[in-house]
Amino acid sequence: MVVHGSLMFTLVQTVVVFLLLLVIAFTVPKLQPLLYVSIFFYTLHHLINKILFPFGRNFVKLFEALPDPFAKLLIGSAILYYISELITKHIEDAGFGSLAAMSHFAVKITILTLWLQQTTALIEILSTLISK
């Protein structure tokens, strides 16, 4: 029910933000990119705190039966990837394509680093099969 309430709130908020952006675009078109960025990040922050994190916790609790790091790892890296994609797209829309690519690359490397332990385990298992 908590999620439900916050969901409604977020939807209403999105509509309000949308209207606000339209008003800004109409009244102060020169300031629009700056204000858009700040409002975007504020909304993203809100979304993450109110919806994504509770969902992530629920998700991890739901799949508690799985061996420990896998559920956390999967949902964590998927959320990280998704947020990075959003921000990348935003920066790209503002016209800084190379910066966007750079930030996305950094996040990808972070995700791979998170998986490093599991990958090491996999390689160890396969190499014990090969060597005597």
């Binding site: 061996p67 896998f70 999967l74 890296s77 599991q118 385990a121 996999l122 298992i125």
Partner: peptide, 10 residues
């Protein structure tokens, strides 16, 4: 990929 990782290691 992660699913395959899970299947192989566990």
């Amino acid at each position: 990929m992660l699913l395959i990782l899970l299947v192989i290691t566990v």
